[in-house]
Design a protein around this nucleic acid. Structure first.
Length: 721
DNA sequence: TATCCGACCTTTTTT
DNA sequence: AGGTCGGATA
């Protein structure tokens, strides 16, 4: 077979990675170095040069988007569908395993997937039912606790509370939550991974099957793996398999959700005979941009080490603009985009990136005013929207009366006179008799054990659901969805909602009907018998990001996190300010600060030809005034690549470059994030530093009295130990 | 039972 | 500033 085409167009290092003998290989792939390319070519190499059957290949990604891209690129390269090969997200593959081996995994055959929102609802319910009022944890914190324990592979009985009552409380809620999920066959996202891991760990036979089958495992974005995913891969690979992992420790920005970039280091220790290959040639950015990125990231201490280089030109300098305030910042960026558009560079080549979602509003307002089309990425996803979840809950309940989660969700949406009292009654009865809420409702209707009014309302609800179930029993998915929505009364309900919001909800419901009719349940990863069940899994596992791809020309707005993996000719990094980026909450911790720096590295390396950084001298946020210092990350960029832009219209004589100088030599021994004590205001945290010498001022967030600006020379602040 | 008002909080996001 | 949540009120 002709294998040369698989290696065509690759550079030497890429070729080395693609054509390495089968074994454990870690590819340290810098931004824009062709990582997906290498991954895809490696698969083609296996199949075409090494005669590996696609059946023996497993390729794992994190997102549905990455999965789709990998699959389509493989098909283009091989010029045929990748039949028999498994390509999927960690969660998708875990789900597939659990569907096949539900018995060995200790699950009911028809287990349901809980999304984050469903999970939180259940935790709230469990938490309240336990009547543990003393706890100072919010349901959200408990959710976080449960998920992080699961990510560490820990069940309630494994957790050592050290006798700490707070910990014991958390473990107790975890336990009750898990018992409820087990009873009702509910599996949250992390549980998918945990069960899949336990399946491999405890069921030798099952593990044997997959070890035998998947001798060639490929993993994308390896730096984002958490402990569970790593352990699962380790089990699957064993000594017989070979793993080809691609990642970039410098782009690890998800530690806060369990990702462990140390897994990159552990790889070399845990996977025998592993080799490390560095992809450092960048095909995306100008030398100036790479220079900036390299210099910045060199400030981090925990790195495997890597330096990007390019054959490309030096390119333009990096522009730096010190805006007067956030409106000025938005105006500056939007003017720049308008100018570039006139020069012929379309809107779609521009992206405005920011640290927090709240920054988008001002930018949007300005773009709108300037008549520049834009699209904000991120935020609420299609299948996460309340109206969509409501409609799906109607659908689910109409088919599975005993689905308590759906029952609770829609029993009084739209409001139909079934209030807290009645629902409490149902829960009580369901619990006492160990039956579903639906059955409890039937029981109560028989006993007439509630007010006539409540009974009537309940009766009508049950009839509504039963009628809907009957109406749709013979229909196709799309038609069924349509009928469900019509019967539910959701459209009228949302029509009443004032303004734009209700309207878009109704549009979304229409879109859901379309999605249902276009849904193809025959894709091989859906092994369900019923198309409806397959559709519900689809709704739970795929957030629905890739719907409605418009082909118009627009500017992209998104957070730095959301920008990972993308590239644009022009990138604007807005809000390069201490306290915002690096974020306040990361400023006092070296480890977190290094992650912020990696985030900045990600941002810089998104730019192909031009990078523009902006910050403001004055920003209104959360209803308070801030006078931030320019981000330390700006100060870490090489001076020779920076070009300060000063506009005539900007009355202030503030110089960004001078401000950077000043920011780096803050005297007085005070730092951002430091805890201080004031004789009158008490304890607080430093939010902002400004000025030098006798003019030096600090903004302190006092626990008692809130934010205050103080002149250092008079404040007599003590640094708290 | 439904609705309204005020207290509270506020990073990043995928599955 | 803007959204969410829970308690008080109609």
């Amino acid at each position: 077979m002709d294998v040369s085409s698989v290696l065509d167009g690759l550079n030497d290092v890429q070729r080395e990675a693609v054509a390495s003998p089968t074994g454990n290989i870690l590819v340290l792939a810098g931004a824009g170095s062709g990582k997906t390319r290498v991954l895809v070519h490696r698969i083609a190499w296996y199949i075409q040069a090494s005669q590996v059957s696609p059946y023996g290949i497993l390729a794992v990604t994190f997102t549905n988007k990455a999965e789709a891209e990998m699959r389509s690129r493989i098909e283009v390269l091989l010029n045929r569908p990748a039949g028999g090969m498994w390509v999927g997200t960690f969660h998708g593959i875990a789900h597939r395993l659990l569907r096949s081996h539900w018995q060995e995994a200790g699950l009911p055959e028809n287990f349901q997937i809980l999304d984050t929102d469903d999970q939180l609802r259940i935790i709230k319910r469990v938490f309240r039912a336990m009547e543990l009022n003393e706890g100072q944890y919010s349901p959200r914190e408990i959710q976080w606790f449960i998920n992080s324990q699961k990510e560490e592979g820990l069940r309630p009985q494994h957790i050592d509370t050290h006798g700490d009552p707070e910990q014991q409380l958390l473990v107790k809620v975890y336990q009750s939550y898990q018992e409820l999920c087990d009873r009702q066959g509910l599996v949250d996202f992390t549980e998918l991974l945990l069960r899949a891991h336990e399946l491999f760990r405890d069921q030798d036979k099952v593990l044997g099957i997959y070890r035998q089958r998947f001798r060639h495992i490929l993993v994308d974005e390896f730096q984002d793996t958490n402990a569970l995913q790593y352990a699962w891969l380790r089990l699957l690979t064993g000594d017989s398999g070979a793993i080809f992992a691609v990642g970039d420790d410098d782009q690890s920005i998800y530690s806060w959700r369990g990702a462990q970039m140390e897994n990159m280091q552990h790889f070399q220790r845990d996977f025998s005979g592993s080799s490390l290959i560095r992809l450092e040639q960048n095909y995306r950015s100008t030398a100036n941009i790479l220079n900036a990125a390299n210099t910045l990231i060199a400030n981090n201490s925990t790195r495997l080490g890597k330096e990007l280089w390019t054959d490309d030109d030096t390119g333009e300098q990096i522009d730096l603009y010190a805006a007067f305030n956030e409106h000025d910042e938005a105006r500056f960026i939007s003017d720049r985009i308008a100018t570039e558009k006139i020069r012929g560079d379309n809107y779609c080549h521009h992206a405005i990136l920011y640290r927090v979602g709240a920054q988008s509003r001002v930018l949007e307002e300005q773009l709108m005013q300037s008549g520049i089309p834009y699209r904000v990425f991120g935020g609420m996803r299609f299948y996460e929207r309340a109206e969509i979840k409501d409609a799906l809950a109607y659908m689910r309940l109409a088919v599975f009366y005993d689905d308590d989660a759906s029952f609770e969700r829609i029993v009084n949406t739209p409001t139909r006179g079934i209030g807290q009292r009645t629902i409490e009654e149902l829960r009580l009865r369901a619990k006492q008799e160990n039956i579903s809420l639906w059955q409890a409702a039937v029981g109560i209707l028989n006993d007439r054990s509630l007010s006539e009014r409540a009974l009537n309302a309940l009766q009508r609800f049950l009839e509504l659901i039963m009628n809907t179930g009957r109406d749709i029993s013979a229909l196709e998915l799309g038609e069924a969805m349509d009928v469900v929505i019509k019967n539910s009364g959701l459209v009228e309900h949302y029509r009443k909602e004032k303004g734009e919001k209700g309207l878009s909800r109704i549009e979304n419901l229409e879109e859901l009907v379309t999605a249902a009719s276009e849904f193809d349940p025959d894709k091989e990863e859906y092994q369900e018998v019923v198309p409806l069940a397959a559709f519900l899994v689809h709704a739970a596992l795929e957030s629905g990001e890739n719907q409605a791809e418009t082909f118009s020309d627009y500017v992209s707005l998104m957070t730095l996190h959301a920008a990972k993996g993308l590239e644009f000719n022009h990138v604007y990094l807005a809000g390069m300010e201490e306290g915002l980026f690096p974020h306040q909450r990361s400023i006092s911790d070296v480890v977190q600060l290094e992650e912020e720096r990696r985030l900045c590295y990600v941002g810089i390396t998104r730019a192909r030809v031009k990078l523009t950084c902006t910050y403001t001298q004055h920003r209104r946020m959360h209803g308070t005034e801030y006078y931030p210092q320019p981000s330390r990350f700006l100060g870490e960029l090489p001076k020779e690549v920076l070009n300060e832009v000063r506009l005539g219209s900007n009355i202030s004589n503030h110089s960004a470059l001078e401000a950077l100088e000043n920011a780096t030599n803050n005297d007085g021994g005070f730092n951002l994030g430091q805890r201080v004590i004031h004789s009158k205001f008490g304890e607080g945290v430093i939010l902002n530093l400004e000025g030098k010498g006798s003019n030096a001022r600090v903004q302190v967030n006092f626990e008692e009295t809130g934010n205050k600006w103080l002149v250092l020379a008079y404040a007599n602040l003590q640094i708290q130990a």
